[in-house]
Every structure is written in structure tokens, then in C-alpha cells.
Design a protein around this nucleic acid. Structure first.
Length: 823
RNA sequence: GCCCACGUGGUGGAACGGCAGACACACGGGACUUAAAAUCCCGUGGGGGGAGACUCCCGUGUGGGUUCGAAUCCCACCGUGGGCACCA
């Protein structure tokens, strides 16, 4: 069915997309090129993984927002960097290869072509000369180079550690890729069950940067919720490590606690079941029970240990430790509520002041010694009191507040050599290897059991071609099947793990700056120019990357800063998350619900400008909101109205410029409205309030439609204001009005301050805070004049009749409120 | 359980502590048309009074509070979404 079009968007959109491409309109100038004398503005989208499903309206929302900003900033005189690329390594393409035998490279290329086509059809103003692809050897060469620098500085190391292994995906996964579920932990991708296995893995020492990753959150302009999530993920806690000696044995054990002030109340000690000291200190009579418990924990730890609905369990080792403060003999237990991977893997239990210890002590009949009382109470309460208060029953701490008691205890411990002040982080080192094919190979060769770096001159280490994609059983890397690749003539063997998908996305924003540079990751001069001062000026993407991508990228950026590659401590100055777009039914879009909105049909029916405008008109960018295909009508009609302000149909139905377009001045009311609109749109664009900017332009266009005034004096500024939102339509109208050049770099309209000054205002008159009247009057009335004008109004007169006015609130230019006695 | 965000018409949403519901969608009425579509105009939170121009009351999840005045600030609760979850 050939739908009649409200305006010929199909023709003009194809035309302008071709013009932009042919003239390389959006090419950004690097230092030394004409254009680079302008101030820079770097507006970045989170680059997509090119999946087989193509882009959905959610991607398009973020990309539309960033494109509007990019176009706006160009018109404001900035040299704008607005690039796009592909995060193309990753599991889905490899899973597809396993299933179909088609090489992931083929699938990836096909998907990228589809994505690029969809993006082009939306009219986004990317500088395609900077397009990057993480699977391109010219790109991943530098991913490998960064890894080598990390390795040289001891920040990449091999460790045998219990890691999350997913039998279904046949790979290990990072902590960050595991989700809790009612049936135990599962993989984030695919929700397959995962279990713990001890394997030799590459780790990155992100914990070395924990403090800076935390502190520098203060430097960036990000949503508070994201900062908070990162803070929680890093999980800094201050406390002390305290040494407990073991009765009858030479060795001692260390515990970490955030409450050293409660040491006098420590009535037992708990080790993680896997703690290396357990075998050494367990008494023979307890050995059987302890080992049985360890086996049980090892078996269930995979799935059930993460659940906390279960009752606490543990066993006594038969051994005793000495409380270093009270000199009391206290029992040593193991229990699975203590984790080996945090702190020292051991705790001092203070059941009187810790809920978990209290629960455990109650269950096993262990003693409870209160040593803190609330500020307003003479004695500690019964049960467990985890709050802060005043120390008691603690000898030299008695009477001190919790904060002081902590310091006093730490000083005492340090003096006696029994402990010291410590900071612990919840953040763990980053598990960096994957047993997959479709990822960056490590630039590492094993010789005599030692990992050796591949010389930089030999980069990139190319991923070998493959025919057979079935992964090997048991968690070995597929690359270990490629003997000709793995085994080197000198007897060395290449590392066969590959890097995780996060690797390529950790630094891609830097490669856009200088994508063709084969001598350096990015030239110093270019990096200084584009990342100057604050790094990426605006970064738009989904909140699902709050901790993973954004924490990893910050880590790498700080490392690159330390080795002199980057010049700013933080990569992304301002971060904005677009909200999720729900299906028309208000539920999350998903294949199984059948509520996914296909952008192709919308583009065919309404055109890219309408889709762009509607994506923005839906509501605040950061908010979650449902899609409504019917709602698209509004912005579409609006664009058609703008079209008809300039164009009209002749008898044959051809669109022609209106013959009556003039250069004549327009009525004062219209000029004022135009200039208010200019101001409002610019203000709203600065704070990314796109929907209110559109509403304001609709108000202007509605006024112009009502009383047709086809004058360039109002039409041209309107077209410029609208052009970041609906660039194809506006380019066409701009050229119809006789401009030979694209409007992409036309100066943004300036609001005339004289036209923004109002002389009159509508005053609101209230009685006891309720609006009882309004009047148009001069804006600059004094209180007395305003009051007497208000009192003359009959409705106010009758409201005030017989009442005594106690007070009059006067807000200049706005409001008058008579406060009268209530009977 | 803990942390964070958010609750406004039939719907999406707007509103520096000062006119609640801008702008749209949907719906209803009208103009144009042989008719329809498109377009244009008018109406549209709920309830009451009035023949009428009009007018009064109620209303921003619930209950309190601060204030001359609260959708907006504070407290408690309920609901929705997101994050964390034995991290000592």
C-alpha cells in the first residue's frame, strides 16, 4: 500500500544523507588541520555490540540525543568529535559459530553492515572516517600493547584461584558477570548455572587503583546513583588487622575488623572453611567433623553458599585463641559465613555487637559479652546492639565514644605490635582471561613455566583462522586446539586464553582520536587536544554499564595516565544514562513478549526526522518510559506543519516553495515568541531537556500556523533551532530558502535580550494562598501600587469585605497574597 | 534485609516554594468534502450551582508537619523500578 505522505521525507532524507556523506560534512579536524583552531567538544555514544537483531528504539534514543548535542555544538562554533564504532568481539557471534559453523568474523561483518545501514538511515552525524572495530588487528594490536604495559608493571599476573566457571558457556567468568538467582548463582549472559573451580587465570590488579577509583568519583559529573553504585562496588572500609595467638601452637592468626573498639567483647574466632590454617590447628578429636564440614561446604559453596536465607552452620576446631586485649581463652571455629576472599579470611566474633555473630553464637551457645552501651543508656541493651555508643567493660576504653575507642584500641595494638590500622576493599582483582576463541589473544608466550611478553615489535599477535568452532570440554581454551599457532619453533607455547569482551571497550574512546596511527595508540598532541581539560565532554549510554565497563575503563585510563599516554585522570567528564524504553504494553521489550518495536517500519512510514523527534519527545532522557507508536503522530504532524510553512502543493500535487515568503518584519508578539523560543531551546539543549525544547517549538509553530506569516525573519531561525532534531527536513527547507551551504555549521540563532524583556505581567492575587484573581499590569509595580490595583477588583473587594487583612505577601512581578483572619 | 531513584488527567508528560495539568496522544464537537482521508477551528481532571457570560468546592500515592502559600521542603507509611546482598 502506498501511503500518502504528509511531506516528502523519503526523498529529502535520502538526498541529504547522500550530500553529508559525499561532502564529508561531519569530518572532525585533528590538530594541524583546518578547523582545529576551534574549541573542541567530544560527544560519545557507548558503542554497540553488533548483534544479529539489529538496533532497537532504545539504542536510537541515546544516539539521537548525542547527535542533537553534536549538531547543536557545531552550530555553536565547536569542533565536534562524534564517532561510532563496533565492540565486535564477544560470545554471541562465537555461540552462533558453534551452532552453524559460520566464522564469527563473517557474522560480525554482516551484522556491522546492518547496524551501519540503520544508523545511516537515522541521519546521525558521525565522522565515519574514524570508525573503529575492536576485532580489527590494527585496533587490537593496541589492546595487546596496553596489556603488555600492565604486565611489565606487575599489574597483570597469573593466579590459581577458585573462579566462576560456567559449564554451559564452557568458560570462566568474572565476579561481575555473575548474578544471584533463586536457584543459586547464574551467568549474566544466558542465566546458566555457574560453579566455583580452581583454575589458572590471568588477573588484573585493579585493587591497586581502588583508592583512586573511589576518590576521583568526585572529579566527574555523573548521576549520583552511578557514583553510589561504584562506591558500593569498591566497598572501602576502615578498620584494623588484629593478631590472635593460638594456644599451644607457634602460629597466630589475623583477623580484619571495622570495630576494633569491641575487641574486649570478642568471644570466639571464626575462620573461612578454606583457610590454610585450619588443617594446622584443628585438634585430632575434631578433625573428622571439620573435614566433613569442609567437604560439605566445598560441595555446596558453588550454588547454595551465596544464599543467606539458610541458617548459619559451622564447627569447632577444638583449638583456642587468646583474645589479645582480655587475655581470655576463646574457641576457634570455621563457618561458611566467613569468606576467604575478603580481608584475612578470618574474623573475631563479637556477638554482642554484630548481628551475624549474634545469630551464630545463639545457635551454638557461645558467650555474649556486651562492651558498648547506647549514648543515652547506662547499660548495654539485651541482645545485639550493632550501633555506635560508649565503650564499657573494656578497661582502658571505658567511657570513650565508638570513634575514639577505635583509635585508642588501634594505638594500643600498634604499640604492643598486635595489630595495625588497615583499609579493606570489597573490590577484587579482575579476572581477565576467557576460554574462548573470539577475543584478543594475549601477547604472552610460556617458556619453562614462565610467562614472557611478546616483544612490542611483534604485535599484533593475530588470532589464527579456524574451521571447527566446537569448544573443548573441561574449560580449556579453543586456541589450544590450534597446535600450529600455539607451539613456537623454539619450544615456547602461546597463551591460549583470550581477553574478555570488556578489554576492547576499555579504551576505544582514545582510538577514535587517532584511528589510523600505527606508531602509537594515540599521538600525544591529538590526545591533548581532544581529551584536554576534562576528557570526553559528554558520554551517553545505558545504566547497565554502571559498574562493569565504566569501572574497567576508568582503571585503564588511570593506568594510561600513569604511564603518560593520557593527560587527564578521568576519561568521561559528564555521563548521562538514557532510560530504558519499554514496549507499548509497558513491559520490558523482549522477543518472548513479542513487543519489540522495529525501527525499519517506522522509518518507512514516518521518516527518520519524525522518529528522531518522537524519541526525544517521549519524555526526559534519563527516565524509563513506554513506547507508543500512536504517539508518533504528534511530532510527525508537527514536522509537516513546519514543511507547509515554507512549501505548498500546486494543482498537480507537487510541492513548491510558497510564493509569498518575504523578508518583512513580523508583528511584535510573534517576534517576542520567537526570541523566547530561541532562549528556551538553547537552555533546554544545554541540560538535555529535549522534550521541553520540542514543546516550545510546537508552541511557536502553532502560533505561526494560526496566522500565516511567511517571513524569513521568523522562518529561518525556526529552521535552525529545529535542525539538530530534524536535520533532513531543515536542510531541505534551508536550501529552498536559497542557502547554498549546509546548515550544519550555520551560526546558532541568538535571542535578542530586548525582546525577552516583558513590560507587563499577569499578576496572581491570592487570599490566604488561594488564587482569587489575576490582573495584567506593569511588571515593575511597587507593593503599594499593586495592592491598590488589586483591591479595586470587585472579586477581591468582596473576598476582603468585612475581614481584617493581617499581612500582605508581595512577590515583585508575580504575586500578591492577602492574609486575612480566618473565622 | 540494606542503599538509590520515582509515584501528577484516559495516556506520555509540564511546572526557580507562588496560576497544577504546558506540549502531545486519545476522545468528543464543528468547518472543508458528494463522501472519506488529510487539514483547520473549538472542547476535554473530578464534583456542585447557574438560562448565561460565570462561579464555588475537591484534586499531584497515603497520613502528618514546616510555611502567608507545598506536586515541589521535612517525617512516617504504602506502591513501582534499579542496585547490593553474610564483605566483618
Amino acid at each position: 500500500m502506498e501511503a500518502r505522505r504528509a511531506y516528502p521525507f523519503d526523498r529529502i532524507e535520502a538526498k541529504w544523507q547522500r550530500v553529508w556523506q559525499e561532502r564529508a560534512v561531519f569530518r572532525a579536524a585533528n590538530p594541524g588541520e583546518p578547523g582545529a583552531e576551534k574549541p573542541k567538544y567530544y560527544v560519545l555514544d557507548m558503542f554497540p555490540y553488533p548483534s544479529g537483531r539489529g538496533l532497537h528504539v532504545g539504542h536510537l534514543e541515546g544516539y539521537t540525543a548525542s547527535d542533537i548535542v553534536a549538531r547543536y555544538k557545531r552550530m555553536r562554533g565547536f569542533n565536534v568529535l562524534h564517532p561510532m564504532g563496533w565492540d565486535a568481539f564477544g560470545l554471541p557471534a562465537e555461540q552462533h559459530a558453534v551452532a552453524t559453523g559460520i566464522h564469527p568474523r563473517i557474522t560480525t561483518e554482516r551484522n556491522i553492515a546492518h547496524f551501519r545501514e540503520q544508523i545511516t538511515a537515522m541521519g546521525f552525524s558521525y565522522d565515519w572516517s574514524r570508525e573503529i572495530n575492536t576485532t580489527d588487528p590494527r585496533y587490537y594490536r593496541w589492546t595487546q600493547w596496553i596489556f603488555l604495559q600492565l604486565f611489565r608493571r606487575g599489574l597483570a599476573y597469573v593466579a590459581e584461584a577458585p573462579v566462576w566457571y560456567c559449564p554451559a558457556l564452557q568458560t570462566v567468568l568474572a565476579n561481575e558477570e555473575i548474578l544471584p538467582s533463586p536457584d543459586g548463582p547464574v551467568s549474566e549472559r544466558g542465566h546458566h548455572p555457574v560453579e566455583r573451580r580452581p583454575l589458572q587465570q590471568w588477573m588484573l590488579r585493579i585493587t591497586a587503583y581502588a583508592e583512586r577509583l573511589l576518590a576521583d568519583l568526585d572529579l566527574v559529573d555523573w548521576p549520583d546513583s552511578i557514583k553510589e553504585m561504584q562506591r558500593n562496588w569498591i566497598g572501602r572500609s576502615e578498620g584494623a588487622v588484629i593478631r590472635f595467638s593460638i594456644e599451644g601452637i607457634e602460629s597466630s592468626l589475623e583477623v580484619f575488623t571495622t570495630r576494633p573498639d569491641t575487641l574486649f567483647g570478642a568471644t570466639y574466632v571464626v575462620l573461612a572453611p578454606e583457610h590454610p590454617l585450619v588443617a594446622k590447628i584443628t585438634r585430632p578429636e575434631c578433625r573428622e567433623a571439620v573435614e566433613a564440614y569442609q567437604r560439605e561446604v566445598a560441595k555446596k559453596s558453588d550454588l547454595e553458599r551465596a544464599e543467606l536465607t539458610e541458617e548459619k552452620t559451622g564447627v569447632f576446631l577444638g583449638a583456642f585463641a587468646i583474645n589479645p586485649a582480655s587475655r581470655e581463652r576463646i574457641p576457634v571455629w570455621i563457618a561458611d559465613y566467613v569468606l576467604l576472599s575478603y580481608g584475612t579470611g578470618a574474623i573475631m566474633a563479637v556477638p554482642a555487637h554484630d548481628e551475624r555473630d549474634f545469630e551464630f553464637a545463639s545457635l551454638f551457645g557461645l558467650p555474649v559479652h556486651p562492651v558498648v552501651r547506647p549514648k543515652d543508656s547506662a547499660a548495654p541493651p539485651a541482645g545485639c546492639f550493632p550501633g555506635e555508643g560508649i565503650a564499657c567493660c573494656s578497661q582502658f576504653l571505658d567511657g570513650l565514644r565508638t570513634l575514639e575507642a577505635k583509635s585508642a584500641m588501634i594505638s594500643w595494638l600498634e604499640e604492643k605490635g598486635l595489630g595495625k590500622r588497615t583499609i579493606q576493599y570489597r573490590l577484587r582483582d579482575w579476572l581477565f582471561s576467557r576460554q574462548r576463541y573470539w577475543g584478543e589473544p594475549f601477547p604472552i608466550v610460556w617458556r619453562n613455566g614462565e610467562a614472557q611478553p611478546v616483544p612490542e615489535t611483534e604485535l599484533p599477535v593475530l588470532l589464527p583462522e579456524r574451521r571447527d568452532f566446537s569448544p573443548e570440554r573441561g574449560g580449556f581454551a579453543p586456541l589450544s586446539q590450534e597446535k600450529g599457532w600455539e607451539e613456537l619453533p623454539d619450544g615456547g607455547r602461546r597463551e591460549t586464553n583470550t581477553m574478555p569482551q570488556w578489554a576492547g571497550s576499555c579504551w576505544y574512546y582514545l582510538r577514535y582520536l587517532d584511528p589510523g596511527n600505527d606508531g602509537e595508540l594515540v599521538s600525544r598532541e591529538t590526545e591533548r587536544y581532544w581529551m584536554g581539560a576534562k576528557g570526553v565532554d559528554l558520554y551517553i549510554g545505558g545504566a547497565e554499564h554502571a559498574v562493569l565497563h565504566l569501572l574497567y575503563a576508568r582503571f585503564w585510563h588511570k593506568f594510561l595516565y600513569d604511564i603518560g599516554v593520557t593527560s587527564t585522570p578521568e576519561p568521561f567528564h559528564r555521563l548521562v544514562n538514557q532510560g530504558i524504553i519499554l514496549g507499548e504494553d509497558g513491559r520490558k521489550m523482549s522477543k518472548s513478549l513479542g513487543n519489540i518495536v522495529n525501527p525499519e517500519s517506522l522509518l518507512r512510514e514516518y521518516g527518520a526526522d519524525s522518529v528522531r523527534l518522537f524519541e526525544m519527545f517521549l519524555g526526559p532522557l534519563e527516565q524509563m518510559k513506554p513506547w507508543s507508536s500512536q504517539g508518533l503522530e504528534g511530532p510527525h504532524r508537527f514536522l509537516a506543519r513546519v514543511w507547509r510553512l515554507v512549501m505548498e502543493e500546486d494543482a498537480e500535487g507537487r510541492w513548491m516553495p510558497r510564493p509569498d515568503i518575504s523578508n518583512e518584519e513580523v508583528p511584535m508578539e510573534t517576534r517576542r515568541l520567537l526570541h523566547r523560543t530561541i532562549r528556551k531551546v538553547a537552555e533546554d539543549l544545554e541540560c538535555l531537556s529535549f522534550h521541553t525544547a520540542i514543546a516550545q517549538m510546537m508552541i511557536l509553530v502553532n502560533a505561526l500556523t494560526r496566522r500565516p506569516i511567511p517571513s524569513r525573519i521568523v522562518l529561518e531561525p525556526l529552521i535552525l533551532l529545529l535542525s539538530p532534531f530534524a536535520p533532513h527536513l531543515c536542510e531541505e527547507l534551508w536550501s529552498v530558502l536559497g542557502h547554498a551551504e549546509s546548515l550544519a555549521y550555520a551560526p546558532w540563532p541568538e535571542a535578542d535580550p530586548l525582546l525577552l524583556i516583558e513590560e507587563e505581567a499577569e499578576w496572581v492575587i491570592q487570599i490566604n494562598g488561594k488564587v482569587r484573581s489575576r490582573m495584567r499590569a506593569a511588571l515593575d509595580l511597587g507593593q503599594e501600587e499593586a495592592e491598590s490595583l488589586a483591591r479595586q477588583r470587585s472579586e477581591i473587594e468582596s473576598w476582603l469585605n468585612g475581614k481584617s487583612v493581617q499581612k500582605v505577601i508581595f512577590v515583585p512581578g508575580k504575586l500578591l497574597n492577602f492574609v486575612v483572619a480566618r473565622e
